[in-house]
Structures are given as C-alpha cells and as structure tokens.
Amino acid sequence: MTADRSMVAGKQEGEKPELDPGPILEVDHLIMNYRTKDGYVSAVQDVSFTIGRGESLGLVGESGCGKTSIAMSLMRLLPDNAEIQAGKIVLDGDNLLELSDEEMRRRRWNDIAMIFQGAMNSWNPVYRVGDQIREAIDLHWEEKPTVAVANARIAELFELVGLDPAMMDRYPHEFSGGMKQRAVIAMALSCDPKIIIADEPTTALDVIVQEQVLEELRSIQHEFGMSIIYISHDIAVIAEITDHLGVMYAGKLVEHGLTEDVFARPRHPYAWLLLSSTPSVTGPRLNLNPLEGEPPDLLHPPTGCRFHPRCPFATDQCAAEEPPMEEIEPGHLVACWNYEQVPEMKAESA
C-alpha cells in the first residue's frame, strides 16, 4: 500500500504486477474439518495450489465439495465449529493462519476481498449502498479520506462497473439483482485488494446479466492486474474467464492446470465425467456420460481415492491408497492412479 490512495485510482497506475514475480497466494496442504456431534467432517483435505499475480483460478466441483470452505479459509471467516488442522495460506509472503484476529481483520478487504454468493442479501437493508462502500474505505485506506474524496472514489467505481454514480445514495432495495451484484464488485474493488474471491458471482443472475457482469469482471481484472479466484459449479462460466482451473471432489483438489489444457484433455476421471456430462449447444450431438451415484458422506470419506466408488476406472489400488498429486505434463497436475486410462474428450468443449 505504497501508492497514494486518496488519489483516485492512483495505485493501479503506479504498480506494475509484472515487476513483482512469485505467486500472490500460495495454499499449502490445507486441511480443514468441521466438528459435528457425529465426528469430524473432512471438508478440505490436503489442498495445495498457487495463484500468480494477475492470474485467475477457477475452482469447480459439485455442491459440498469444499469450494466455499476454501474461500472461507482464505478469508479466515469460518464458522466456529471449523478447524484448520494443518497447512499454510501464504498471501504475498505472510501466512494468514499465523496472524492475530486483529491483524487478519485489517487484511480483509484491504488485501483479500470477496464477491459473495448471495449478493441479493449481502447489503445491509437500512444503509445506503454508497455508505456501505464508504465504510470499507474508511476502515482500510491508510489515511481516512474525507467524505467528498471517498464519494468521488465510489462514483468512479460505480462508473467502472456500469452503474449510475447517483445510485450510491440509494438503498439496496432500490437496486435490481444485477445492480446489487455490480455494486458488490465495486465494493470489492474499493480498497484495491491483491486478490478477489468471487464465490458464485453470477449464480443468482439471469443469463444476459450474468454475461455482462462476467465481461466487466474480466475487463477489470485485466485493467488492474489483480488476481481472482472464481468459485462456481457452472463450468461454462469458469471456462470463459479463468486462466487456471482446479477441479475439486469431496474436499480434495483432483486436477489442476491451465483451463484450456484441462478442458481439452481432462485427465482425472471425475473431471472427465464432469466435462463430458456438460452438453454443448453449438457443438455436435454427443452421448453424454452420466456421473453415477452421490457425492460421498464426508463424515466417513471413502478410503484411498475419494472418487473410487463412483469411478468407472477404479482398481483395487484406488480403494487402498490415496493417489498423490502428480505433474503429468508441465503445469498440469492430477491425483489419479489410472489417469492414462481416461479417454480423450469426444469433441472440444471449451
């Protein structure tokens, strides 16, 4: 936070992301469980990934596979019954898990902001939208700006996300769903965070608005060079906007690589089934490969590979031993014993 923040958009111009190499975020062997009265629910099991500056990572997977749990771990906003058992979350050189609560509170929004899953309800109904954004600015800017300066910044952000700056004096109920979501994006940008977590940023929006919001997010990311983690179960959305893709299953990251590589040739059976069960409207008619069965009960996760009970390629080894994350080609990691058996996609999906 060296640049003068009271200068409108001053920071982005003064800082070139290319100058600072190394990953902005490094998640290292993260293990997180929820304590319940029946035992521990293994929500995030030994997940590692890194995100470079200005990169975007997509996390996909079924509901309950641990995507949001990872996001909450990154923000350190887990519910009381969650326990991070092991691992590191290193943001720009500092392990977030070692910070005090007060230090972490200061980091939130300033370094790591979030676009929420339920943008509809993420605004406090009794305060003006502009005032709620100004609350974040007042808390985190190095020098607390005057109301006029903060408002100028909010107006600028509103224009950036395609909202009329006059709307900042309105209350949340006067916004449509898409407008609320844009305002959430404006709020996420208000303190120039290093990384933004977008948890299902467009799920509640209709397809047309979804497209516009995604387009805006992408152009903002390119303009400011910040890193974004997109969390979604909507593979089409992820394919469109991310450079890197992580596929999660039952709390584990099972495949990780460049988005185009994973889409072109998924090597984990789950990723392969997931991608080939998504119909393409424009592509040729194909027989979809259905994904049989239910996601496992994470109170008692399956032994060995967590996907083996549903896997068409499973062997005895899969039930006995947990496959390690292996780099099968540069930058493309897979956790599967039998990834070589996974067939090619029948057509380009991406």
Binding site: M75, L77, R105, R106, R107, R108, W109, N110, A113, M114, F116, G118, M120, N121, S122, W123, N124, P125, E135, A136, L139, H140, M187
Partner: peptide
C-alpha cells in the same frame, strides 16, 4: 448475509 459481508469487509 450482510453480517457476513461486514465481517469480510474487516
């Protein structure tokens, strides 16, 4: 949700 938002905002 807005309580969560406030927490996330620091």
């Amino acid at each position: 949700d807005y309580i969560f938002t406030a927490r996330a905002k620091g």
